[in-house]
Design a protein around this nucleic acid. Structure first.
Lengths: 311, 311
DNA sequence: ATTATGTATTGCATTTATTGCAATACATAA
DNA sequence: TTATGTATTGCAATAAATGCAATACATAAT
């Protein structure tokens, strides 16, 4: 018969579609997880997922089981709540601020994990310009933010590194003006083309640092709030832009821009942050703990994609 | 974490409130079941049931868990149906005919067990005069009946003994007429009081056998269809009556009648019956198998109550 | 082409959990 | 008192789960 623990395990697998990482999330070895899946499939007499040397993919039957598992675990959480209503367990409300991009990448996994290991914790999410993220911590409503870390980290901030994002230089495939950039791009050329740069925040700082290191004095076409909008502007052909690779990867305008190069020595540390004064909060401690288990699974996913479509 | 097998086990315990019998139903030893309950209670951090030397009783928290367990197992059954819709599993429809009393005693446990071990089997129930039960087998709609076995069991009937019910002689506490029966009841007296007897069926046969053995020639007040109605009539004071003890125990008129004595040497075998020609049916075989596991739990429950309130 | 990294699985020895028997302890009825 | 029914516990045997290390394969980087 099915053990609810195995059901929870399968939900994690559905989220990651990766046996090794799921195993580490569940705190077991990959071999154990592999055998757990065998057991699950044999009791259900069904193939829940296809596992080969390449990885894991969930079958339609697996999706049905996923629904079932989610239902049961929800009811189990409700039962626990009913039995000893939340005593000892992590519960209450928690508000997180982050960029739209961060919400795509980190939040689903974090929420999934919260749902599995602290189902009584209510999470609210606010998205916006990542440049504002650290300041948002001053808002007493906001408990946690996902933000790029500045050079000098304020002393009242506690943080946990999530990922170190490479920055990429983007150019529109169809420039709106007749500006020039050839394949053998020279820095001197960059002073002659319009640039879209962030209005403020750590990315603005990094971009300016790069300009100065490269000794470029670019023409600024626009200063934009929100990383995602920068890619849109570039995609629409208004100019070159610099954003974290991840933002480019996720953007709906991805196909309208080319990656000219990846910026070296850039330092764009994305971290989970909170005010140190809240560090004692049980909920916040729990999230730090949870995310630190989750963090290793972020890194490889993003630094992977290679074979740039350099023009 | 909870195993659905343990949840099913607990549902059986809720039905029987008896650890030993539940253990035998689940096919494990009582010690194993005891430890299963310990495990369950420790994972839920709650007392699901009170277990002492006297027996088991389910706590309110246990009832909550029961609801949860029922939910989950229902969903699990639905999932199984969805995955390989009923292949290999016992499914379809089955109609059972029995008396109201039998439906109170046997049917809940049987249905509970069906629900746990063959959740896709749809059971319909028809209740009526047990005298008609065996004849009902001629109805092609009816697959199984619970009936008293006649002296000569028809050769085309397959059966499984459920219980051997003692018959009791009942007298109204407040007779409607001025008939007489003293505490030192003599058989000769019984010829002078009105009797309510069954219209037909095995009970009619047993009653007449007893009359003739005792050399009583009673005054027949009424011939009634349906055992339950016989107790009602007696309770309303129309006369003495003979019914299976169980019928008396369960009757809402129980408090309006006294048990004068238990009839000796009466032979009222209640059995699960079907036509032999249907014995190959997978569903029917399954029910026989299931009920034969269940049967031992019927017997002790009913032969227990002693200390009759003999007048 | 070769190397390096990432993926899942399998054999094996070890540890851990489960199981049923028999014994125990108590309650209730005969 | 005796017999029956109830649940639990100690114990030894059995069964199951676990992680390590080795394996096999795919893919990407060099």
């Amino acid at each position: 018969m099915i053990d609810l623990k195995d059901a929870a395990t399968f939900l994690r697998l559905c989220e990651t579609e990766n046996l090794t990482r799921t195993a580490s999330l569940c705190g077991v070895s990959p071999s154990t997880l592999s055998r757990t899946l065998n057991k699950l499939e044999s009791t259900l007499q069904t193939n829940l997922c296809i596992r080969d040397k390449k990885g894991v993919s969930i079958t339609p039957y697996g999706r049905k089981f996923e629904k079932f598992a989610r239902n049961c675990l929800n009811e189990y959480a409700a039962l626990e709540q009913e039995l000893h209503h939340g005593a000892e367990s992590i519960s209450g409300k928690l508000k997180i601020y982050c960029s739209v991009t961060a919400s795509y990448l980190f939040i689903p996994r974090i929420l999934n994990e919260i749902h599995l290991s602290a189902p009584h914790l209510e999470v609210k999410l606010e998205t916006g310009d990542p440049a504002d993220a650290l300041d948002k911590l001053e808002d007493p409503q906001i408990d946690l933010v996902i933000s790029a870390l500045p050079q000098d980290i304020p002393s009242n901030i506690k943080f946990l590194d999530l990922i170190n994002l490479p920055l990429v230089l983007l150019a529109p495939k169809q420039p709106r003006f007749q500006f020039n950039f050839s394949t053998d791009l020279k820095n001197s050329d960059l002073s002659k083309v319009p640039f879209i740069i962030p209005e403020k925040g750590q990315l603005r700082y990094e971009v300016e640092k790069w300009f100065s290191a490269m000794d470029i004095h670019p023409e600024i076409y626009a200063e934009i709030a929100g990383h995602e909008a920068i890619v849109s502007m570039a995609g629409l052909g208004f100019g070159l832009a610099i954003v974290p690779r991840l933002v480019y990867e996720i953007s709906p305008f991805k196909n309208d821009v080319n990656v000219l190069r990846e910026l070296q020595w850039s330092n764009f540390r994305v971290a989970l942050c909170s005010k140190k004064i809240n560090a004692q909060d049980k909920k916040i401690q729990f999230i730090y703990d949870l995310v630190s288990r989750l963090a290793p699974s972020f890194t490889p996913d993003l630094t992977r994609r290679r074979n740039e479509n350099i023009i």
